[in-house]
């Protein structure tokens, strides 16, 4: 069995999943994957929604994405275990070692910092790769096109200056 799908088949399947999620037979809403983070932060830090207006905003979409995320973890885990056979514990991505450095501490510190600002950024913009790129641009929303353009530029500029070009 092939251990991975080509980009075009992945793109077609992702489009079909988006259309199912949008439809009244699925979720009758867009697909999103960053509103669950403040929802879980509220649960884990035991924050009372009465005291935090943002938790009231994310109550329903956060719960929806929370359930979806549990499914995604489950689906990702099963696929990694049985289909792509990619499951193994690791701390250092191969390309980080090749294009950045060999330090585990550096990788973990940068992961933490980037994770922190990744979510701040997504929440400021009101969406992420799923909510803005996939769902927003499929609806031809200008907000998502602006976000998409800014993210692409920021991603490539960071890629150019943060990593070494050669191994």
């Amino acid at each position: 069995m092939k251990r991975r799908l080509p980009w075009w088949l992945g793109g077609i399947l992702m489009a079909l999943l988006l259309l199912f999620t949008f439809s009244i037979f699925g979720g009758n809403r867009p697909l999103g994957a960053s509103t669950y983070v403040p929802y879980f932060a509220g649960v884990l830090f035991n924050m009372d929604p009465k005291d935090y207006v943002y938790l009231q905003h994310v109550k329903n979409p956060g719960a929806w994405e929370g359930v979806m995320l549990l499914g995604a973890l489950f689906g990702g885990f099963l696929t990694a275990l049985f289909v792509t056979k990619s499951f193994r514990f690791s701390v250092m991505p191969t390309a980080w070692k090749a294009y950045k450095n060999g330090s585990v501490v550096s990788r973990l510190v940068w992961s933490f910092v980037a994770g922190f600002f990744l979510i701040i950024g997504a929440r400021l913009a009101g969406g992420c790769t799923s909510g803005h790129f996939l769902s927003g641009m499929s609806q031809t929303a200008f907000s998502s096109m602006i976000f998409g353009g800014v993210v692409l530029i920021s991603l490539i500029v960071t890629g150019k200056f943060f990593y070494k070009g050669e191994q």
Binding site: A114, S154, F162
Partner: peptide
């Protein structure tokens, strides 16, 4: 929000190598 958020998001995505959807996977 879109511009400041987009800059932070893009830079963090390049460094972490994940976005909020692919990270959990």
């Amino acid at each position: 929000g879109l511009i400041v958020g987009g800059i932070l998001f893009g830079a963090s995505m390049a460094i972490l190598g994940k976005c909020p959807g692919t990270g959990p996977i």
